[in-house]
Design a protein around this nucleic acid. Structure first.
Length: 203
DNA sequence: TTCGTGATAGAG
DNA sequence: TCTATCACGAAG
């Protein structure tokens, strides 16, 4: 398996990387294409198995619907930048900014641990690999992602980036989790049959 | 199913 | 200031 950071240099080489960059596209396409890619964060890495798309406009579940600060973040920052916020008093949520055909965020909900697994187990204080990153709050705890990375560009630093391999991934779309407004959109994407997602897709 | 938790925004 | 809300997770 070859691993390449989503740097500008790599973009010119691999079509897979071009499809998954965060500018001139939209959050739904990006969320779908990031399934199967790797999230690399320091000594840890995992295969992304679950994402959700949130749009800046016409999406009542998005932060931008009720938070001026989220709208300001979009106008201030470049695509590919991390948008990290604190939720329910205990959990950090990792998003990446997408700007282009439409603006918004991709929320990372679950990854399959690949590297740094012992470190993740230590941080999470559990041993079950399937439970290490099977939720947006679990993922950030396992990867030690907090607001100190808020605003970081995830397309330049090889230690904090996305990487792509040659695997063909079977992606399923279904409804987003944990929201009440705009809940009918099929903007949650998972690897079909994966045991590492936060909640299995209803068949 | 319940509940702790804290940032945010809007109302007063 | 006060209060409602929230893209969650763990315990039971």
């Amino acid at each position: 398996m070859s691993i390449q950071p989503a740097s500008d240099a790599a973009v010119t080489v691999r079509s897979r990387i071009i499809r998954a960059t965060f500018f001139q596209r939209d959050p739904i396409t990006c969320a779908r294409d990031l399934i199967g890619a790797q999230l690399i964060w320091g000594k840890c890495a995992g295969k992304i198995v679950e994402t959700e798309a949130y749009l800046e406009r016409a999406d009542e579940a998005s932060h931008t619907f009720s938070r001026p600060s989220a709208r300001a973040f979009i106008s201030r920052n470049k695509p590919g930048v991390a948008y990290i916020y604190f939720s329910y008093g205990t959990h950090w949520m990792l998003n990446v900014l997408v700007k282009g055909k439409s603006n918004g965020f991709v929320l990372f909900r679950a990854v399959q641990p690949l590297q740094g697994i012992e470190l993740m187990k230590k941080r999470r204080k559990i041993d079950n690999e399937r439970q290490l990153c099977s939720g947006p709050g679990k993922l950030t705890q396992a990867f030690d992602i907090t607001n100190r990375y808020h605003g970081m560009n995830l397309c330049v630093d090889p230690c904090h980036c996305f990487a792509y391999d040659n695997d063909d991934v079977d992606v399923v779309a279904d409804a987003r989790i944990g929201i009440t407004r705009s809940a009918h959109h099929l903007w949650r994407f998972t690897v079909r049959g994966s045991e590492f997602v936060s909640r299995r897709v209803k068949l």
